[in-house]
Structures are given as structure tokens and as C-alpha cells.
């Protein structure tokens, strides 16, 4: 397994996702002889996981069963250890498309944070592209590097422990796209411009506050970026349910035996409470001139 290539069977050293049902899941590092406790009992890695196909149903010691899934950046986003606030797949999707990422793209990112977006970028730019990710927090940078190795994607990523606002991305004129998720993105726009290829490229900045966006947009204009747009994307989930509505008794029935009862139908109900804001996404293109 690797996060950029599907494999059929589970091997030692793989990261697998244990799916318990109802959206509840967690990642495991598959190791010969290791055991994992779940609410349905123990999973023995040697017996239950190694050599089995991804997607198999595993019966745990107490008789309950779980599914073992092949990791994907999207499943990782839902399961990764949070060291920071992370980006979720809804925002990641539009970032990836608006930055025009594809195999072969070279991308600069800061900060690395918990690596949620990093994994998605690496997946998209492999096997011919590269991610340069910059994180000013030393432990976070180290931890991210470890995870990239564990997930067998380290050859497509370079982690740098430095402050992007002071020292930039450590590369210049190589990037097709730059992504910023830092508290003061306006301080890094100059470095972003320098990282982008001479013939141009795309930039995205993620900020939760509109004041940050305003300063960023001003800096983008000052540095000659064009096509500056700001947008916000929200996920609306629906639960599928069977609903029943009682039919009202209007009295004075014409039928001798009024058939009262319920009407039943399938519906998609919006969640009672949902995420209402993640951040504003500002996109821009580096001008040729």
C-alpha cells in the first residue's frame, strides 16, 4: 500500500483504516504479531490482516466485525492525529481544482500543519510532480516527515522547517502552484511569487477571517497577481431516512370506512447542525508581466 497507489493485499508496515460502521473508523499500522482492540474485540494483525485483501470483513474476537480499508488521502483526513486545525476534503477539492493540480505539478505549501492537504496534493501530483512543504514548528515538521515515510510517499515531498514569511519556500521559480495557510499570508506573497515559475502559476490562500483576506488581496495586487477571486465552499450533507406523516382526519368521510393512516416516503434530511464556516479561499494567478 501507498497513499498514491492501490494494492490488493494488506502487507506488514501498511497503514490500514479499520471501519467500525456509522462513520466510525481509525487507522492502524499493520505489524506482524500486533493486536488492536476494538469495541467488537481484538484484531490480530498476523491472522486477520496480513495477506488479506483490502475491503475484507474481519470478524473480531467478540464476534463483531469490521471492514479493513485501503487508505486514501480522504480517509486519512478523517482519521489523522490533529496537531493543528486541518483542512477537510470539501475545501481540499476546490483547492486542488482551482490550483490546476495534476500529475507532474510542482507545489509549494505552508504550513504543513497536520498534513491533511499535503497528502491530497502528493496523491494528485505523483508520480512526476513534487510537493515542497514548509512548517515553522519543528516537531510538526518532523512528525509530518515521519508520516510521509510511513505512507510511502516521501519521495514526492520535501519538508522544510522554516518560517515561510521570513525565509520563503527554499526553492525559486519551480512551482506551478503555491498554497498558503498561515496567520499572515500577506507577508509571504513575495516569497510565493518567487517560488512560482517564471511563466506563471496559481496561488491559493486560506484564511478564516475576512480581515486577513483583505490584507492578502491587497498584497496580491501589489505583487502584480491577477484574476484574484475569493470564495467560500460549504458541504451540505443529507441523512437518508424513511419518514412517516400521519394523514389528517378531515371528518365527514364519504367512504363508509375512512382509511386513516400514514404516508411513508424516503427523504434526504439536512443535518440539524453543520459546519457553517471553515475559511475563505483566495485564488490568484501570477501575471506574466
Amino acid at each position: 500500500m501507498s497513499f498514491v497507489e492501490y494494492e490488493e493485499l494488506i502487507k506488514e508496515g501498511d497503514t490500514a483504516i479499520i471501519f467500525l460502521g456509522h462513520g466510525s473508523m481509525f487507522p492502524v499500522q499493520v505489524q506482524r504479531g500486533a493486536q488492536t482492540q476494538t469495541k467488537y474485540g481484538v484484531i490480530r494483525h498476523s491472522a486477520h490482516l496480513i495477506g488479506q485483501p483490502f475491503g475484507s470483513r474481519v470478524t473480531c474476537s467478540k464476534g463483531g466485525w469490521v471492514y479493513v480499508l485501503h487508505p486514501t488521502p480522504e480517509l486519512w483526513t478523517l482519521n489523522l492525529p490533529h496537531r493543528t486545525q486541518i483542512l477537510y476534503s470539501t475545501d481540499i477539492s476546490i483547492i486542488t481544482m482551482m490550483l490546476e493540480l495534476k500529475p507532474g505539478s510542482v507545489v509549494c505549501e505552508s504550513g504543513t500543519g497536520s498534513g491533511s492537504l499535503s497528502h491530497a496534493i502528493i496523491r494528485t501530483v505523483a508520480p512526476t510532480g513534487h510537493l515542497h512543504t514548509v512548517e515553522f514548528h519543528q516537531q510538526r515538521a518532523q512528525k509530518a516527515e515521519e508520516e510521509f515515510r510511513e505512507h510511502r510517499v516521501d519521495r514526492w515531498v520535501t519538508v522544510r522547517n522554516q518560517d515561510v514569511c521570513k525565509n520563503g519556500f527554499g526553492v525559486s521559480h519551480v512551482a506551478d502552484a503555491v498554497f498558503l495557510d498561515i496567520p499572515s499570508p500577506w507577508e509571504a506573497i513575495g516569497h510565493a511569487k518567487d517560488a512560482l515559475k517564471v511563466e506563471g502559476g496559481r496561488l491559493c490562500s486560506f484564511s478564516p477571517c475576512i480581515e486577513q483576506v483583505q490584507r492578502t488581496c491587497q498584497a496580491l495586487a501589489e505583487h502584480g497577481f491577477i484574476e484574484v477571486t475569493t470564495l467560500e465552499i460549504l458541504l451540505r450533507e443529507y441523512n437518508v431516512r424513511t419518514a412517516n406523516l400521519p394523514l389528517p382526519d378531515l371528518g365527514g368521510a364519504l367512504d363508509p370506512l375512512p382509511v386513516l393512516g400514514e404516508a411513508q416516503f424516503k427523504i434526504g434530511v439536512p443535518l440539524r447542525e453543520t459546519v457553517g464556516h471553515t475559511g475563505y479561499l483566495t485564488f490568484a494567478s501570477k501575471s506574466l508581466f
Binding site: 460502521g21 470539501t90 483576506v213 470564495l231 467560500e232 465552499i233 458541504l235 443529507y238
Partner: peptide
């Protein structure tokens, strides 16, 4: 598994 029905809302801003 993990079936999800969803849509997205997209809002553009004047900055």
C-alpha cells in the same frame, strides 16, 4: 459502506 449524500454551496466574495 460510508454512503454519503451531499451537495456543496459555493459563495463568491467581493474583497
Amino acid at each position: 459502506i460510508n454512503l454519503r449524500l451531499s451537495e456543496t454551496w459555493l459563495r463568491n466574495y467581493q474583497v
